[in-house]
């Protein structure tokens, strides 16, 4: 840890702050999008849009929201997230397989 004890040059600290602000801006934008998607999802159901159309759209909106959550809020887009991404995709693959099974070959 010795390499961290030295004081940081001022310009680097400023640069980092700017970077953080930039990232925060992206996160606020993704939050706004998520709220928007939620409004659309609830709106469609309350308006009674045909279920043949609405179910795929609902699922799509949910998946996009979750992508925002994972990549922006949880920083999966940043460097050093290869292994977390690998394991999340692994989990998602098994999850998908499980859900397909339970909706198709479980009888009735």
């Amino acid at each position: 840890m010795a390499d961290h004890t030295g004081s940081k040059p001022v310009h680097q600290a400023e640069y980092e702050r700017k970077q953080h602000r930039e990232e925060m801006k992206q996160q606020v934008i993704s939050f706004v999008m998520m709220i928007l998607f939620t409004f659309v999802a609830f709106g469609m159901v309350m308006a009674g849009v045909d279920s043949f159309f609405v179910i795929p759209v609902l699922l799509l909106l949910a998946i996009v929201q979750v992508v925002f959550q994972l990549y922006y809020f949880m920083h999966m887009k940043n460097k050093g997230h290869d292994m977390p991404a690998l394991m999340m995709y692994g989990g998602a693959a098994v999850a998908l397989l499980t859900i397909i099974t339970f909706t198709t070959i479980i009888w009735w």
Binding site: M83, M88, T98, F102
Partner: peptide
């Protein structure tokens, strides 16, 4: 890293619950 992996496992846990619910 360990916590992310735990969340990968939790994904399967909740998928099993969702699957049961859908069934």
């Amino acid at each position: 890293l360990g916590f992310w992996f735990f969340l990968g496992g939790e994904t399967v846990l909740f998928a099993s619950l969702f699957g049961t619910y859908l069934a």
